Amino acid sequence: MRQTTMTKPADVTRTWYVVDGTGKTLGRLATEVAAVLRGKHKPTYTPNVDCGDYVIVINADKIELTGNKMEGKKYYSHSMYPGGLRVRTAKEMKSKYTVEWVEKAVYGMLPHTRLGNVQRRHLFVYTGSEHPHAAQQPVEMVIKG
C-alpha cells in the first residue's frame, strides 16, 4: 500500500531563482513566481508547509502589460478614513512604484494567511539588472511569454 509523504519543515531544501523581467507579461510572470514561492513545482509539495523557494525578479521596470491595460487597469487602496480612496493607473504604478506593482501582482496569487505572509518574504524585486544576492548563487529561471 502506498503512503502519502508529508513534508516536514526541517526537510525542506530551498534554492534561489533569478527571473529576468525584460519583455515579460506581468500576469504570466506573477503566476510562475507565485508557484515557485509556494513550492508547487516540487514533487514534495505540501499545502500546509512552507516548502517554496526564494525568487529574485530583476529588470522589473521592463515588464509589460498587454492590450489597453496601461491606461485602463486601476489599482485601488483605501486608508479606512472618509474620503481615503486612492486610485492609480497601471501606467502610474509602473513608472513610480515599480517594485510594489510587481509585488502586488504576485501577492494576489499567494494565500492570504499566515503561511502566505511567510512565503511573501521570499520574493525580492529590483528595478535594475543588479541584485545583492550573488552569494546565494541563484539559478536562472526561464519564463515563457
Rank of each mutant, 00 (worst) to 15 (best):
P111S: 10
V12T: 05
T7A: 05
V57N: 07
V139Q: 13
H122S: 08
Q3D: 11
T98L: 09
L29I: 05
G145N: 06
Y17M: 03
R28Q: 04
A10W: 00
T22E: 11
T25Y: 10
H112D: 14
R120L: 01
Y97Q: 11
T13S: 07
G23W: 12
G128V: 01
E130V: 07
L110P: 04
E92C: 02
P9D: 08
H131K: 08
V106C: 11
G27S: 07
T44D: 05
A30D: 00
L29N: 11
G23P: 03
D20W: 03
H78S: 15
K91W: 09
T7G: 00
K24Y: 02
Y76L: 14
K96D: 10
I63Q: 00
S129D: 14
T13C: 05
K91R: 15
T46Q: 02
T5P: 09
L110V: 05
W16V: 07
Q137A: 14
V142Q: 14
Y81I: 11
P82E: 13
I58T: 10
A105Y: 10
R88F: 08
V12D: 04
Y126P: 02
V106P: 12
V99C: 04
G145T: 07
A30G: 06
V87D: 03
Y75H: 14
Y45A: 12
K104M: 12
K104S: 15
P111W: 07
C51F: 06
T113G: 10
V19R: 00
A35Y: 04
Y107L: 14
D53I: 04
E103R: 15
P138K: 00
K96Y: 04
V12F: 04
K96M: 04
D20A: 00
